[in-house]
């Protein structure tokens, strides 16, 4: 029994190999990119618009709103990173309804890669926002004694991100596989539905945590949005 789509190897040449994870990822990338291109090549800017454009506008503006709610003042700057995390993880979970498909997020390699991306992106955004000194200074806040703890926190949360997503996706697939062998009728459908739900929740959690980390790195001491005085 395969624990992850990494084990599904299509082609290998020494260290380099093309496995199920990479292939399914490419498929998802293809779906996302081509789907987006198909819809956005004929965008209308007036009040009438196509259904697919409407759907994508809802998704994009929803993600933008969520990023803004986390506390990032310029959501359009971060939507490329955070939104892609969400869409990729969410689509990877949604596609589990397709027979023979295995979510690439069910591979610890994928989740680790995503977590590493977050690990790299957070300092980059932080440095971009408040400069290298300002960002590095955040590691010795409130005292220099906190430096190792901050570094450990940074690493551990990356690990947590990777393992959380992997665990959830993998377990969903595993439970489905196991249930199919025990009770092949009806019950796996509920579990599959539950898997879809947990997949969406995980996508939301992963992207929101990434946004929170970025927000923490970019506005260390800036207060949360001041509510505008009501007239």
């Amino acid at each position: 029994m395969r624990l992850s789509p990494d084990d599904m190897i299509f082609w290998q040449h020494g260290f380099v190999k093309i496995n199920g994870t990479i292939v399914f990822t490419w498929a998802l990338m293809l779906v996302l990119a081509v789907g987006s291109w198909l819809v956005t090549r004929r965008l209308s800017t007036d009040l009438r618009r196509a259904r697919w454009q409407n759907l994508l506008e809802i998704v994009v503006t929803g993600i933008e709103k969520q990023i803004e709610d986390v506390g990032l003042r310029d959501p359009q700057k971060y939507i490329g990173f955070v939104g892609t995390l969400f869409l990729f993880v969410a689509l990877a979970s949604l596609c589990t309804v397709i027979p023979g498909y295995e979510p690439p997020t069910g591979s610890l390699s994928t989740t680790a890669a995503l977590a590493l991306c977050v690990l790299v992106a957070v300092p980059l955004f932080g440095i971009e926002e408040q400069g290298l000194g300002g960002y590095l200074k955040s590691y010795i806040e409130p005292t220099i004694i906190m430096l190792p703890f901050n570094v450990i926190s940074e690493l551990s949360r990356t690990l947590a991100l990777a393992v959380r997503l992997f665990g959830n996706m993998m377990s969903g697939t595993m439970i489905l596989a196991i249930l199919l062998t025990i009770t092949p009728f009806i019950f796996p459908i509920f579990m599959s539905a539950l898997g879809l739900l947990t997949g969406m929740v995980q996508a939301y959690i992963f992207s929101i945590l990434a946004a929170v980390y970025i927000a923490a790195a970019t506005r260390q001491r800036t207060p949360r949005r001041n509510p505008a005085p009501k007239p």
């Binding site: 624990l3 992850s4 990494d6 260290f15 380099v16 190999k17 496995n19 994870t21 990479i22 990822t25 490419w26 990338m29 996302l32 990119a33 987006s36 291109w37 956005t40 994508l56 994009v60 359009q76 939507i79 490329g80 990173f81 939104g83 892609t84 869409l87 990729f88 690439p104 591979s107 610890l108 390699s109 994928t110 680790a112 890669a113 995503l114 590493l116 991306c117 992997f166």
Partner: peptide
């Protein structure tokens, strides 16, 4: 559980996907 080539490939894939979605979606 972790295949480091796959990790690298997925990270690259993800970066490409970010670029693609930025270009075609957002």
């Amino acid at each position: 559980l972790i295949d480091w080539f796959t990790v690298g490939a997925q990270a690259l894939n993800f970066i490409i996907l970010v670029w693609l979605l930025r270009r075609f979606l957002y």
